[in-house]
Amino acid sequence: MKVKIKSWNSVAIWKWDVPNEEVCGICRVAFDGCCSTCKTPGDDCPLIWGECSHVFHMHCLLRWLATEGSRGQCPMDRKAWVTAK
């Protein structure tokens, strides 16, 4: 008997590309979880990367940038926030 693979249906679970168990610097919730206003993690509560290499829940960061005190800066290093492409 000779056997060959004809087709292979894989299953994978996608994860945010961040180090394990790291939390959002604003809401202190794991990136695998969601920000404080969302109910389910996943595409509905995406992350956002800055050019400064810092990562946050997008909702958290937008809320932060909307406050006057933020002055459009990254909350971690106080550099002007530029979203990475």
Binding site: M1, K6, S7, N9, V11, A12, W14, K15, W49
Partner: peptide, 22 residues
């Protein structure tokens, strides 16, 4: 394609078709 996302494989859930030659 999906920026910021990585994959974790669950090979135990996979299913496949094998060609067998007898």
């Amino acid at each position: 394609k999906a920026r910021g996302k990585g994959l974790k494989w669950y090979n135990n859930l996979a299913y496949c078709v094998l060609s067998a030659y007898y």
